[in-house]
């Protein structure tokens, strides 16, 4: 997916961009609303992450102008103000969702996924891998003729594994990316999800291997 990140604080923008890149998304960053306008004209984006308070204006006005001009790229607003009024005015002006800084990355990704799913229809989001087809927006995998539904964490686990096939992941790493930091989970919790995903992948050519003492590796047979 290609994201447009409109955020004026350099360090934050960089951190968010690298975190999104880790998920396998391409991110362009605009430091001003004017930059954002130019980038939006130049390239197609799947999602815009838009900060409310920008140096050259209010993100909500930018959004309203974009919607008035017929723009349809889904938008998630980011704001440092948690007031309900901001949230309401934001959603009224055509934002698809809203997240308050500082955000939990897991939550941001979950919201991105939910918004993208609502705007689904982009068939090019389907991915083929080792004998199965993966539909991230529909949250399904198809093995042969059989379509299997994935639950949120199975889907998330699959996404992480698919972003770098063949790489070994430690349990701790997977836990950090799979769970919100508000949740306290034991190291063993990951085994449950690995087990479930393995069952869903049965019959395909993909293998999710346990590396004793290290973690897991995902690769085509």
């Amino acid at each position: 997916m290609r994201f447009l990140l409109v955020e004026d604080t350099d360090e934050l923008a960089q951190a968010v961009a690298s975190r999104l890149a880790l998920e396998g998304h391409g991110v362009d960053r605009a430091a001003t609303l004017a930059d954002a306008r130019d980038l939006l004209r130049a390239a197609p984006y799947d999602l815009i992450l838009l900060d409310i308070s920008m140096p050259d204006g209010d993100g909500r006005d930018f959004l309203a102008q974009d919607r008035a001009a017929g723009g349809s790229v889904p938008v998630i607003m980011m704001t440092a103000s948690a007031s309900v009024n901001d949230r309401v005015t934001t959603l009224d002006r055509g934002a698809d969702d809203y997240i308050v800084k500082p955000f939990d990355f897991a939550e941001l990704l979950a919201r991105c996924r939910a918004v993208l799913r609502r705007h689904a229809g982009a068939a090019d989001s389907l991915r083929r891998f080792a004998g199965f087809t993966y539909d991230p927006l529909g949250a399904t995998i198809t093995v042969g003729d059989e379509t299997r539904e994935l639950r949120a964490r199975e889907l998330r686990l699959l996404e992480i594994l698919l972003s770098r096939p063949g790489q070994a992941y430690s349990k701790a790493h997977l836990i950090d990316r799979l769970f919100s930091f508000d949740e306290m989970v034991s190291d063993n919790a990951i085994e449950v999800y690995v087990g479930r995903l393995r069952r869903k992948l049965e019959g395909s050519g993909a293998r999710l291997e346990t590396l004793r003492g290290v973690g897991y590796r995902f690769f085509p047979e």
């Binding site: 604080t9 800084k101 500082p102």
Partner: peptide
């Protein structure tokens, strides 16, 4: 919030 979100994102990275 703004510095907190920066700290948080950096820490996650």
């Amino acid at each position: 919030r703004t510095p907190l979100s920066l700290v948080r994102t950096e820490a996650e990275l």
